[in-house]
Amino acid sequence: MNRIEIPEDYEDRLAAGRHAAARLPAGAVREGVDRALDAAPSRDRYEQAADLAERAESLTEELMRRGFDGTDADRVAWLRLDYLGRLQSLALSPTIDRLSNPAVADAIQAAWTAAEAARSEYVLLLERAHADLVAARVPDRAGDELRDRIARSAHERFSHTTDDDLCSAEVNVEGRLTGFKFLVPNATLDTECEELSVQATATVQAAQAKAVERLGELLA
Rank of each mutant, 00 (worst) to 15 (best):
A91D: 11
R141A: 15
V134K: 09
P102Y: 04
V138L: 10
A142H: 10
R141K: 07
Q88M: 12
A118M: 14
H130D: 12
S89L: 12
I108K: 00
A117E: 14
I108T: 03
A142I: 15
A136L: 06
L84I: 06
L126P: 02
L81I: 05
I108D: 00
I108Y: 00
E116V: 15
L133D: 14
I108F: 01
L99H: 08
A136V: 10
L124H: 07
L90G: 03
T95N: 06
P139D: 08
A129G: 05
R149P: 11
E116Y: 05
L146Y: 09
T113H: 04
L133R: 10
R137M: 06
L84A: 02
R147N: 14
S93M: 09
A107T: 10
R137Y: 03
L99V: 05
A107N: 03
A114S: 08
G85R: 09
L84V: 12
L146F: 13
A142K: 08
L133M: 15
A110W: 04
L124S: 13
A110F: 03
G85L: 01
D106C: 12
N101C: 08
A103K: 02
L87D: 02
A136Y: 05
A117C: 08
I96C: 05
A118P: 06
Y83V: 12
L146W: 07
S120H: 08
Q88A: 03
N101R: 01
E145I: 09
E145L: 15
R119G: 07
E127A: 14
I96N: 02
A135Y: 06
I150T: 12
L133S: 10
V123H: 06
A129H: 01
P94W: 06
G85N: 01
A91I: 06
N101T: 02
D97M: 07
R137H: 09
R149K: 15
P102A: 11
P139F: 09
A118Y: 05
A91Y: 04
L79I: 10
L146G: 02
D144W: 05
A103M: 04
R86I: 03
D97E: 02
R80P: 01
I108E: 00
L133N: 12
A110E: 09
A136M: 03
L99K: 09
S120I: 14
L126I: 10
L90W: 00
S100A: 07
L84T: 01
R98E: 15
W112D: 02
P139Q: 12
N101G: 04
A135L: 07
D82K: 00
R86Y: 00
A107K: 00
A142D: 15
V104R: 06
P139H: 02
R119N: 13
E121I: 10
L126A: 04
A105K: 07
R128F: 07
E145P: 08
S100V: 01
E127C: 13
A91P: 00
R86F: 06
L90C: 04
G143Q: 15
T113E: 13
D148G: 14
A117L: 10
T113A: 12
T113D: 11
V134N: 11
A103V: 03
P102G: 08
E145S: 13
A91T: 07
R147L: 14
R147Y: 10
G85D: 11
L90S: 08
D82P: 06
A105E: 00
A115M: 14
A103I: 08
Q109V: 08
S120A: 14
L81H: 00
A111V: 15
Q88H: 04
P139E: 15
R119A: 13
E116M: 14
L126K: 10
L81N: 01
N101Y: 04
A142Q: 14
R128A: 07
E121V: 12
